[in-house]
Design a protein around this nucleic acid. Structure first.
Ligand SMILES: [Zn+2]
Length: 415
DNA sequence: CGCCTTTGACCTGCGC
DNA sequence: GCGCAGGTCAAAGGCG
């Protein structure tokens, strides 16, 4: 609100209050009625001394009409906001359902023997993988070379079937919930386990579920706040980079498989590289929704273009924007398909500082999931718009310096 | 007390 | 098989 304008409003108010209000309405959002109303009242008082009863009555009438209109617009604005929120929720739910259905269809096409043991196995892939994880854990226990000073002793092999399963019970539960809630992502707890003899589409599914989104942003802060709660579970020095890489997992819900890695770029330490992997198994606050959408959309793109490899994306209708570059992400982990959003360099042909209201761009974000297969390039724009338009995306957890993410300054690439 | 970070040890995949 | 590098685990300690 322009406090500086108060005296100006009194001193320089034009005779025609309608014009003033109209121009105000053009400049300001509808929710700034309060200011306009006070301006108008001030005007009215001034006018009282100057004009006769007939004109005053006309002014009153105009004023009432305008106030009515303003309150109507205000109400409409509130209603639209509510709608946007509702659409956000619906979209998330729909997206989950869509990918669930799509997965089932894929399975049915490749596994026509309904009810067969194989399909049963496929359906329980995450659980099976989880079971394998548990087995792996047992295996690790066997392989322990020496007792540890600090590390807790793992259960002995003879007890593992019950005790270890119990200790990992929450993970199994998480895997189940994951299967039913989010068909898109793959439980990261089983990420190191590969299901043998999985059909090609199964491999594609795996790749999709494990697609990652890498965000590069200029930031002095150690973290980009994305609306989620994260818990750091590790830090490593990566080869070829003096800056350590930090590992975080989402703690907004028990068993949420989403992880992220944060590392400063070796070439430019002001650039913070954040890599997300997985999909949340819980509702997200609006601030986190953009990033979650990005991850999911990225996975969807990679799914649609993954019949052979991510390099064939153009053949499936996806063409990266002309300013796209292939980024060497600091994470070279087994060549997982990764989408890189580069928020550090201004793209060619775009205004570096585009002050577009958030709402229209955010609305783009809510394109129905069913369009993923046919409007890949628009999805790309959608993703970048959604993220860069989200004001919450730049704020960092109590840290004054927030990442400088210029609006529309994004580079989008896959590798 | 619960949650978080730190940090050394361990696991795993990959290249040689 | 071995070594390396990336990723994860979990005890210990800090903090509110
Ligand atoms: Zn989560």
């Amino acid at each position: 609100m322009g406090d500086t304008g108060r005296s100006k409003e009194v001193d320089f108010l034009p005779r025609d209050g309608t014009a003033e209000i109209d121009s105000q309405r053009r400049r300001d959002a509808p929710w700034t009625n309060k200011r306009i109303r006070s301006v108008t009242r001030l005007h009215l008082r001034t006018v009282n001394y100057e004009i006769g009863g007939e004109e005053r009555a006309r002014s009153d009438l105009q004023l009432t009409t305008l106030q009515d209109e303003l309150s109507r617009l205000s109400e409409e604005n509130r209603r639209l906001k509510g709608m946007v929120e509702k659409v956000t929720k619906d979209y998330s739910a729909l997206k989950c359902q869509f990918f669930l259905v799509k997965q089932q269809n894929t399975k049915e096409n490749s596994q026509p023997k309904i009810g067969s043991l194989h399909e049963d196995f496929e359906d329980r892939k995450p659980l099976v993988a989880q079971a394998r994880m548990i087995h792996s854990s047992v295996h690790r226990g066997k392989r322990r070379r020496r007792p540890l000073r600090r590390r807790r002793q793992r259960p002995s092999p003879s007890l593992t079937n019950s005790a270890d399963t119990a200790s990992k019970g929450h993970q199994l539960t998480a895997a189940k919930r994951h299967l039913s809630f989010d068909g898109l992502s793959y439980d990261a707890l089983s990420e190191n386990d590969k299901i043998p003899n999985v059909a090609n589409d199964g491999a594609a599914e795996m790749r999709c579920r494990r697609a990652r989104v890498c965000v590069r942003a200029v930031s002095e802060a150690p973290l980009i706040s994305d609306g989620c709660q994260w818990r750091k579970y590790g830090q490593k020095m990566a080869k070829g980079n003096p800056c350590p890489r930090a590992y975080y997992r989402c703690t907004m819900a028990a068993g949420c498989p989403v992880r992220k890695q944060v590392q400063r770029s070796a070439e430019d330490r002001t650039i913070l590289v954040t890599t997300y992997e997985g999909s949340h198994n819980h509702p997200l606050p609006p601030a986190a929704a953009a990033m979650a959408s990005t991850t999911s959309a990225a996975a969807a793109m990679l799914l649609s273009g993954s019949s052979t490899s991510s390099e064939t994306l153009p053949a499936t209708g996806f063409y990266p924007p002309s300013y796209a570059t292939t980024m060497a992400t600091p994470l070279t982990r087994r060549a997982l398909p990764t989408i890189t959003l580069d928020l550090t360099q201004p793209p060619n042909g775009l205004m570096p500082f585009q002050h577009t209201p958030c709402l229209p761009q955010k609305r783009l974000e809510f394109l129905p999931a069913v369009q993923f297969d046919h409007q890949q390039s628009s999805i790309v724009e959608t993703i970048t718009s959604a993220i860069t338009a989200d004001p919450n995306f730049t704020a960092s957890k109590g840290v004054p310096e927030s990442p400088q993410i210029p609006q529309s300054c994004t580079t989008f690439s896959t590798n």
